[in-house]
Design a protein around this nucleic acid. Structure first.
Length: 321
DNA sequence: CCTCCAATAT
DNA sequence: AATATTGGAG
């Protein structure tokens, strides 16, 4: 399937492990701020109130053993080369900020029990498993259009633009241009605008009623006032700079037993798996300096970061003892 | 033609 | 329910 993920383009070469560790250290609380290992993190009252059975006291040996166990699990042979990838992804996530990781988690219908081992295996197979070239996919690419998911970020951008255009100017083409999101088509915007107008009309009609339980996406973002007023905001460009246009980012879809596979973008445009090859084909020519990843990768890197943090905390406990 | 937009399809 | 596609109107 397509090209391999080009994480290396974004990788902080060399000292990223040490650098990240130092970064983590810097962000951690002082040793003095940490409660001693012997102290419960949850008060006995609180624990009993929520039926939490307090864990037995741990000592340094327990912590060390647990830490080693976790580390060996992570670095164990089966996933050894995976850990390297995860490290790459972790540093990559740091560069990109929070948006795609968190949102991806939100947008993807996560199976709560999705075992890490399964994910890891899938990442692994995505690496070099199949060598279906771009050409093979190209044939199918011309037929269908991608299905865009309007994530909160993307919708917020949409509302920003619509808000600062007058009613008259808030038409699909203009909105699309001002949104400046590469890969976003006029049709995408038109379709969304149509639905958005219906939403605005509806909430205006029942303005005194409680908000409808549906409309999760729209309700999360304030309605553009200028959809009712006339005229846009002249100072907008000074106040809300248009961010850099993003590079389209594709990643080969990794076959997924759950049947879904999404890809993250800036603004969190998310593609449905069945649309991947179409999008890839259409946008591949523009792929200059892009890095690609799937939500699964992001999720794994996220869990890796969390593990990292936990280890740092454990480390501080050890220092304390 | 191009764009918008409402209706309709997926 | 969300998004894409269609087809008439301007």
């Amino acid at each position: 399937m397509g090209k391999e993920v080009r994480i290396n383009d974004y990788e902080v070469s060399g000292e990223d492990d040490d650098g990240r560790a130092t970064e983590w250290e810097a962000g951690l609380p002082n040793v003095d701020d940490l409660p001693p290992l012997s102290q419960f993190l949850i008060s006995p009252e609180l624990a009993s109130a929520f039926n939490i059975t307090p864990e037995p006291h741990r000592n340094m040996i327990d912590v060390t053993r647990a830490s080693h166990k976790t580390l060996s699990t992570l670095r164990g042979q089966p996933n050894q080369h995976l850990v390297g990838k995860l490290n790459d992804f972790a540093s990559f996530s740091d560069d990109r900020g929070e948006e795609m990781v968190v949102e991806g988690e939100d947008a993807v219908d996560l199976t709560p029990d999705g075992s890490d081992s399964r994910k890891l295996r899938r990442v692994d197979s995505g690496g070099d498993g199949d060598g279906v070239g771009e050409e093979a996919d190209s044939s199918a690419c011309t037929s269908k259009r991608i299905r865009l998911v309007w994530t909160p970020q993307l919708h917020r951008r949409f509302v920003e633009v619509v808000t600062h255009l007058g009613v008259k100017n808030a038409v699909p083409k203009t909105i699309m241009q001002l949104m400046n999101v590469e890969g976003l088509t006029r049709e995408n915007v038109a379709s969304h605008l149509q639905k958005y107008r219906l939403y605005v009309k509806r909430i205006q009609g029942i303005s005194n009623e409680g908000p409808s339980p549906s409309d999760h996406l729209f309700a999360s973002t304030p309605v553009a006032k200028s959809l009712q007023d006339s005229g846009g905001n002249q100072n907008w460009h000074a106040r809300v700079p248009i961010p850099m246009q993003y590079q389209p980012q594709m990643v080969p879809p990794v076959p997924n037993s759950a049947g879904f596979e999404y890809h993250s973008h800036p603004y969190n445009m998310i593609m449905h798996p069945k649309d991947w090859c179409h999008n890839s084909c259409r946008l591949q020519n523009n792929l200059s300096n892009s890095c690609t990843f799937s939500v699964e990768y992001a999720l794994i890197s996220f869990s890796f970061i969390v593990t990292d943090a936990i280890h740092s905390v454990i480390h501080h406990y050890l220092l304390l003892e």
